[in-house]
Design a binder for these strands. Structure first.
Lengths: 129, 129
DNA sequence: CTAAAGCTTCCAGTACAGGGGAAGGTCAAG
DNA sequence: CTTGACCTTCCCCTGTACTGGAAGCTTTAG
């Protein structure tokens, strides 16, 4: 698969994929005789993982650490366990805060639901946006 | 309350608070006769909200939009409702991805747990970090 | 054979969220 | 009445995660 196809499939850009390779998030791609990067679908899985990590608020550096662990198939020492524990604690905190915020926003949204429609007539500029 | 106290209480810095004021996330603070910013505890609540928003992966611009809605006490038009819906959809997606990632990491961490301790002896550099 | 689309590297620029530090004003303690 | 802690504005710098664009090579279609 060429870089353009992969980017499309992964919902990103060729620029970003080269950037990820540069940052060590993707292994240096195989090359065709012409010098083009040549990917397998494995890369797609990897990019999805990166996207999930980002959605969780991890930095690319943190994602790379986790990928390195995954790449070696097994986690062989305390440092690695500690790293994963730190990430998990981090993520659990984020999950709690996210639930909190969701509730707050849902409350606001609920107020919006029960407002008279003509409170914001079409010829009135909505100053809240 | 002066800016230093507030920063301390909110777990942030004076720099950041002035930056938030500049960006419209905090209303321009009252001033003492000497020109110092003078805050009430209300600001603390607001900063906590901002922090929760950030933990949820919202940008400061998005947080500001939500705060603007909150500030006017009521959500008066479709645009606002749509904005909140967009944020909620956004957050629900993040919550799902976060759960996913948590499972993945917990799996890895579990492997780490069941590894022989001496696989990573003290005189062996842990190459995974 | 040529044109267009897609790829290569390289360098520079952008947006976001702040942080550093200068130059100077304010306030409470001694 | 001075010293030190804290405050003010202003301007520039930093790190993260990309993005744009130039100059040139490769591949596919007509």
């Amino acid at each position: 698969m060429r870089i353009g196809e992969l980017a499309e499939a992964a919902g990103t850009t060729t620029k970003t994929l080269r950037f990820y390779e540069d940052q060590g998030l993707l292994p240096p791609a195989e090359r065709t005789p012409g010098g083009y990067r040549d990917y397998t679908t494995e890369s797609l899985t990897r990019i999805d993982f990166i996207h999930r990590g980002q959605a969780a608020g991890l930095s690319l550096a943190q994602i790379r650490q986790v990928l390195d662990i995954r790449d070696h198939g097994q986690a062989p020492c305390d440092h690695v366990r500690d790293l994963l524990d730190a990430r998990l604690t981090d993520i659990d905190l984020k999950l709690r805060q996210l639930h909190d915020l969701r509730d707050t926003l849902a409350g606001l949204r609920d107020q919006a639901e029960h407002v008279e429609p003509d409170t914001c007539s079409s010829d009135q500029v909505c100053r809240y946006l």
